[in-house]
Amino acid sequence: MIQTLVFYMFAIITIACGFMVITARNPVHSVLFLILAFFNAAGLFLLQGAEFISMILVIVYVGAVAVLFLFVVMMLDVNLNEMRRGFVKYLPIGLAVGAVLLVELFTIFTAWVVEPAVISVNAATATPAASEVHNTEALGNLIYTHYVYLFMGSGMVLLLAMVGAIVLTLRSRDGVKKQRIMDQIARPASEEVELVKVSSGGGI
């Protein structure tokens, strides 16, 4: 009973936050609602027994990605009214596309059948019962053994994203002073410090 209640609480807050993300007037509020939505989604995962994904969602999305988002939004000072200008004009197209996708989703939910021929093929990657193995371990087993190819491939994609970002943005500027710790340490005292005998009251 409590589980059901909690589920509805998380679900309602998630949807409400999603709605607020697109309607809030202040972009910072939008991002904060987005974060709250992430948080409640993590709660939903937790209810499903997917504790690992739930925590990773909080750590990665809420703890890192959304922080950067918030950073940018706070600093950019986006003018939402400016961005909303074409809203009414494009609304019918947007609604039409949305309606089409909605209808397709309905066809899925009303007529969802898994082809029997492929169920046996899936045995290799079937989900083990939650009581037998922690889902952290189960995920690890799949990602690092069965799907290691995809894991490595995603690694290459991320590496490429990093290379691309650096290529397109890094500029070597002149006149930037950089601290070189090794140079500082290697400086001998004899070259830099001069000991002077000063007679008292005499000054240098």
Binding site: I35, M55, V58, I59, V62, G63, A64, V67, L70
Partner: peptide, 8 residues
């Protein structure tokens, strides 16, 4: 996760 939320 909790400690990473502290930044907010």
């Amino acid at each position: 996760a909790i400690s990473s939320l502290g930044v907010y």
